[in-house]
Design a protein around this nucleic acid. Structure first.
Lengths: 200, 200
DNA sequence: ATTAAACTGTGTATAAATTACACAGTATAA
DNA sequence: TTATACTGTGTAATTTATACACAGTTTAAT
């Protein structure tokens, strides 16, 4: 399994990549991935893999799809199922472990070329994420507990890669009833914007 | 891999089921499925499996998702990736082969309980099909080359399990430009309706 | 041949959803 | 204190979706 871990930092959608320390694709960046374990589901296994490579643990994984091209691994036959997850980078400090020499958050718009067929997996994961955007307020995993509507809009714009009308966005989000005001204002930012939180 | 093969007959959405001749789940109905082959992709393998069980060959397979529950097979650990395909039953006569004792088209609304977790797979496949309905005119695989708008609407209604307004449906389909009139009329049906075909 | 039944083909009015757009107010930084 | 950068708000216009009725054509029955 492989997983596309998305984060949101400095107003940009980011993707967690690992640098591989062994052949094939030594020193190339790619999605964290590894092999399945007996007695565990794919979701459990991918979480274990993620922990073993980056120290991140217990995140909700959403399935993207399975890949089975015969030559997708240059040495042996490897199928993979790709997942994506959304996390707050500040809650999940990362460290390189095992056969990984480096771990970095890359701005999704400035990804390096990835090893294996991971360029494809990353793209498919983003499309899946976009498709899921309106269904469930998954962004809860990407933002702090309390956030301004501007922060939420920046997140949407990063994921969708398009600009949104501020008034219409605000209207749509508030009408959905899925976020509610906390009656607190964010300090340190001009305008003193209201803080909101996800309604549970 | 397993596959949900959809057909459209007698104005009903149907699903192709096989009756298993061996344990576990002997004599139970289920989706055709089998194991992966070396040197082939999942899509190729599932087509081979399908041929070996039913005689159907070479159909386009759309991936639904992977299933990995530890206890989904009562005897040993088996993962599966489920696909769906759309075919015209009249083009693909079926015969029971290998460990299959019977093959039948079941009305989707009157399915028997299925072996393994295939009730779940069938449902997920239907949902995936619904989601894909508007994107691409996949129904091309379910209808004859030339079809009336009523036949198309019946198909949509079967898949979506809801009734649609005839005039609005006609407007939407024709405006999409994806089907075009053939200037032929269907005979043997009252009203003498125009025949349409998919624009390629 | 006539008639009844079942279907086709067509347009408009209403409602709902989406889009476009401007200015006054507030907190911060200089 | 002032300039800057941001917040908060409503309405009109457009587009899209929905509701709905009747005359015409072909078949089947008599």
């Amino acid at each position: 399994m492989d997983c596309a871990i998305f984060g949101f930092q400095d107003n940009e959608l980011r993707l967690l990549l690992v640098k591989r320390a062994i052949d094939p694709f030594k020193d190339q960046w790619m999605l964290p991935g590894g092999i399945m374990e007996e007695g565990h589901t794919l979701e459990e296994s991918v979480n274990n893999v993620l922990f073993n490579l980056t120290g991140i643990h217990d995140v909700h994984q959403e399935q993207v799809k399975a890949y089975s091209r015969v030559d997708r691994h240059p040495v042996k036959r490897v199928l993979t199922v790709c997942f994506y997850a959304l996390i707050k980078p500040e809650n999940h400090p990362v460290i390189a472990k095992n056969y990984v020499s480096d771990v970095q958050w890359y701005s999704f718009s400035k990804l390096p070329g990835l090893g294996f067929d991971h360029d494809q997996l990353a793209l498919d994961a983003l499309h899946k994420l976009r498709g899921n955007l309106d269904q469930n307020l998954i962004f809860g995993e990407l933002l702090p507990d309390k956030f301004t509507l501007k922060e939420l809009q920046d997140l949407y714009e990063s994921i969708l890669d398009e600009t949104l009308d501020r008034r219409n966005f605000r209207k749509k989000i508030l009408q959905s009833g899925l976020v509610i005001p906390t009656n607190e204002k964010k300090v340190g930012v001009k305008g003193g914007p209201e803080l909101y939180r996800i309604k549970k």
